[in-house]
Design a protein around this nucleic acid. Structure first.
Length: 461
RNA sequence: GUCCCCAUCGUCUAGCCCGGUUAGGACACUACCCUUUCACGGUAAGAACCGGGGUUCGAAUCCCCGUGGGGACGCCA
């Protein structure tokens, strides 16, 4: 195990969104790439805004994505506890160190961090108030992605609120020191905070970790970074919609990073092998749900049939609302299996499955009137269906191929083509013109259902 | 307003560090092919170096200035 120690430090103040997931992913990838340690630390110092519910969302999402932590809540570790709400003793110890070093003072009931330098009062136009400026040299942030960034940190800032609770900048730095974090990988929105953090590290006499400020994810429409309220922002939404976590992880890893060549779809082991901080981009990336959907489809297509069927069943169980799903789950498991295997190469996402397979599980399926008009509008479809229905007795349902041969023979007898039977049979069987191959559809439905649907269609059409 | 970061097809990006490419790939879009519908797949097309200066024989690449985008400026994290 290498000496690299990274941490993901979310605050349970809202749902877990895509930007947080990507930050967690990059930390995790770096830890796995270097053989280091991935620490999960919960920054729940703001009691007003934290909730257990959100905490569980974080755990669930990380687990779903496969981002396992080596130290953190629930599993512990040598630097625990890993929830800041349980680390009050650590913070008072560190505050004492700072006090002893003469770097703190009290004002308005809060404790402030004192910068060293000549002081002067100036009026801040933007904040509309007087502030005390301290004459200091610019702080240098040595960033693995941005290079050396200089920022003037010239105002004292609060480290303990008047209610006695420490603030983010303080706990973040203290815990990074206490937990011996070597690399701080986080969103670029923290770059402006980094100067405060560097000054704190220096005040503690602690080594400053390597920083890596990664670009932000921008919302796909409109200005600004992606936030909780944006369409498609929440991880649990993808989980609910049946996206494959490995597809989402692959997609997310490519948002702001690339392996340096054209490869996109890569197994996670390969991503781990290739991931490194210098490969991370400097510019923000716009989220693109179409590309994610494409990635998801590619992963779905590659799934072994048994795994696909299992996931389909899981998805159906998780979405019990519709009657289609009730029927599907009530169906014979062999039949369910066959329907899903037939559908796997055709769909882009698991969420399409209920609608795509509905007519397999009920006789009450709707018929698309536009499609009916199209199919019934040319040739003599009723005659064809009637011929096919008559031929059913001698059709061998053993396999798609035997069905295909049977229909081809029939077509040859009549001097017609396969296509003359295909579209009307499909309409009678499914009520639409999209779906799996007609032969596969017939085989899975079975001869009895096929005959019944043909008869009913001929009687009503 | 101040400070910081960034800038290649509509989008994600390769190329930039170390100047010489028909500026490459993917998603999306379009056409065609495959085909038993719909997909998948295949082929093709369109599509970009933000602008202006400089340095240089030569700039997407190096420098400066604009402009644009993003972020930060809390007793939130």
């Amino acid at each position: 195990m290498s000496s690299v120690r990274v941490r993901f430090a979310p605050s349970p103040t809202g749902f877990f969104h895509i930007g947080s997931a990507r930050t967690a992913l990059f930390n995790w990838l770096y830890a796995r790439h270097t053989g280091g340690t991935f620490v999960l630390r919960i920054e729940d110092t703001d009691k007003e805004r934290n909730s257990e519910q959100f905490l569980n969302v974080i755990y669930d999402s990380l687990r779903w994505l496969g981002l396992n932590w080596d130290e953190g809540p629930n599993i512990g570790g040598p630097f625990g506890p890993y929830r800041q709400s349980e680390r009050a003793a650590v913070y008072s110890d560190y505050l004492e160190k700072l006090r002893l070093a003469g770097r703190t003072y009290e004002k308005d009931g809060a404790i402030w961090f004192k910068l060293i330098g000549e002081r002067s009062e100036v009026f801040d136009e933007h904040r509309k108030k007087n502030v005390t400026k301290v004459k200091v040299a610019p702080t240098v942030i040595d960033d693995q992605i941005r290079g050396k960034v200089e920022r003037l940190e010239d105002e004292d800032f609060v480290i303990f609120r008047s209610d006695g609770n420490p603030v983010f900048h303080f706990v973040n730095v203290v815990d990074d020191i206490a937990m011996q974090i070597t690399h701080v990988i986080r969103g670029e929105d923290h770059l402006s905070n980094a100067s405060k953090h560097v000054e704190l590290f220096k005040a503690f006499g602690a080594p400053v970790p390597q920083f890596a400020h990664i670009p932000l994810i921008l919302k796909q429409n409109g200005p600004g970074k992606m936030s909780k309220r944006d369409q498609g922002a929440l991880i649990e939404e993808y989980q609910k919609r049946g996206y494959l976590p490995e597809a989402l992880v692959n997609f997310l890893s490519l948002l702001g990073w690339n392996p340096g060549d054209d490869r996109e779809k890569m197994p996670i082991a390969e991503i781990i092998r290739l991931f490194d901080l210098p490969g991370v981009n400097q510019s923000n990336a716009r989220f693109d749900d179409k590309k994610l959907a494409h990635m998801n489809m590619a992963y779905l297509l590659d799934l072994p049939a048994e795994r696909f069927v299992a996931l389909a069943r899981e998805y159906f169980i998780a979405h019990p609302a519709s009657p289609t799903i009730t029927h599907a789950l009530a169906a014979d498991s062999r039949y369910f299996h066959d329907v899903m295997v037939l559908s796997q190469p055709k769909i882009k996402g698991l969420e399409e499955l209920p609608a795509y397979t509905a007519y397999f599980f009920t006789e009450e399926f709707a018929t698309d009137e536009k499609v009916r008009g199209k199919v019934m509008g040319k040739g003599e479809p009723k005659a064809r269906l009637s011929e096919l229905s008559d031929a059913l007795v001698r059709l061998d349902f053993a396999s798609d191929l035997t069905i295909e041969d049977g229909i081809k023979n029939l077509a040859a007898e009549k001097g017609l083509g396969f296509g003359d039977y295909q579209s009307v049979a499909r309409l009678a069987l499914s009520g639409t013109n999209v779906g799996p191959s007609i032969t596969g559809m017939m085989r899975v439905l079975g001869k009895d259902k096929v005959r019944a649907r043909f008869d009913r269609f001929l009687a009503t059409a």
